[in-house]
Computed example of a mutant assay.
Amino acid sequence: MTLTLDRPGTLPAVAPNADALQRQGARERRALASLTLPGAALIFVVLILPIGWLFWQSFFGAAGQPTLENYARMLKPVYVRTFVTTFEVSGLVTLACVLLGYPVAYLLAQLPERLAGLLMIFVILPFWTSVLVRTYAWLVLLQRTGIINTWLVDAGLISEPLPLVHNMLGVVIGMVHVMLPFLILPLYASMRAIDPVYMRAAANCGATPAQAFRQVFLPLSLPGLAAGVGLVFVLCLGFYVTPALLGGGRVSMWAMQIADNISVYGNWGAASSLGVVLLIVTGIILYAFKRLFRTENFGGTH
């Protein structure tokens, strides 16, 4: 340490040198590392380790021999068709959630906070019911002898039941019901954070309500929209129960293919390779999506 005199007649002030500052910084880093170690260990056990095992297992065949056949078989038409169907369904569900969820979130954001909180109960109400129960409820509503078709036939609006289930339409309807809250919640939080002063300033500058919404409100809500779209799209990629029941075996998604490889064929290598490919493609799409929206994170910051 070095001693310095502030002015004559005063005690010298102690100025720490560079070595002392480095030792203090090292102690702080060790303390920070000790605090983050339990969380890092948990992430390693529940995330990194299973992904590593999945990647390793994908290079072994049913006989336990190292092979690349698990990846080569993905070029077969059945796997290509399932892969395309998975992203097609996920894209349609995400688009439907945006078209339905954005107006709802906008309406809630414009209401007083107390009333919006009350109406938010109806948004989160599906979380209180099992996905399996909701899927069977839609099956009762949409089947040929279900409530919707029966009502339409009795009202004379249609002459024969509409094919609303056991096809792509039924799968999309059931998945939208499940996924809609996941888009509304982050979007609503992002819209609530927008200062109303911006809209009033746009009006003072001569902008019409439509222009103010398009040029001010919509760009500011994009981070929340990106968060909701990313969350909905990723969750849709792993859906199993809803497509299996409402698709009636006619809509096969990637998760169903993985389950069949394990439960029917007992081939963990093939199932692991499907999971690895889905994980990589999902990561690429999310990165491209993030670059498209130019958001530094999906947390809803402006």
Rank of each mutant, 00 (worst) to 15 (best):
R192H: 13
D6K: 15
W254A: 07
M191W: 02
F298A: 02
V176K: 09
A155D: 05
I147P: 05
L278W: 11
A270Q: 14
V131R: 11
A109I: 05
L132D: 00
A31P: 06
Y198N: 00
P163K: 14
I284S: 05
G206E: 15
V84Q: 05
D19N: 13
M168E: 08
P77G: 09
A255G: 01
K290S: 07
F83T: 12
L42R: 05
L108Y: 08
L274N: 02
P186I: 08
V171T: 07
Y240V: 02
W56H: 08
L92S: 11
V123S: 00
R114G: 07
V46L: 15
L92H: 08
M253N: 01
N297E: 15
A212T: 13
T242S: 11
R192K: 15
L246Q: 01
G300K: 06
W53L: 04
M199N: 09
K290L: 10
G266M: 00
P209C: 13
K76A: 15
R291S: 12
T135G: 03
G91I: 07
Q257G: 12
I48C: 10
R81E: 09
R200W: 00
L142I: 00
L108H: 06
A202S: 12
V178M: 12
W138Y: 13
A201V: 15
A105L: 05
G230H: 03
L237D: 04
L125Q: 00
L225I: 13
T145C: 01
P38D: 03
L157N: 04
S252N: 02
G230N: 08
R291K: 15
I262L: 03
A33M: 14
P112V: 12
F239H: 02
M1G: 14
L292N: 11
D260K: 08
V281W: 01
L152G: 12
N167A: 06
V80G: 05
A270W: 03
I148A: 11
P196W: 11
L274V: 01
V264N: 00
G224R: 09
L162G: 10
L292V: 03
F213S: 13
L286D: 08
P163F: 01
S58V: 07
E113K: 15
T67A: 02
G238I: 01
N261I: 00
Y188W: 10
F293G: 07
A259N: 07
S221A: 15
Q110H: 14
L292F: 15
T85H: 04
F83V: 06
A270C: 05
V277I: 15
D6N: 14
F87M: 01
S273D: 04
G156W: 09
Y102T: 12
L274W: 05
G228T: 02
E160L: 05
V251T: 03
T295Y: 04
G174S: 09
G146D: 09
P8S: 15
T129A: 12
V197T: 12
G206R: 09
F83D: 03
G101H: 09
Y265E: 07
E113S: 13
V229G: 07
V171S: 03
R7H: 14
Q257Y: 04
N149Y: 06
I48G: 06
Y102G: 02
L222K: 14
P103H: 11
R114Y: 01
V234Y: 00
T150A: 13
T135H: 11
Q211M: 11
S190L: 00
N149H: 07
A255K: 04
V14E: 14
Q24V: 10
M256W: 00
T36G: 09
Q215P: 06
A255D: 04
T208C: 06
N204W: 02
L111P: 08
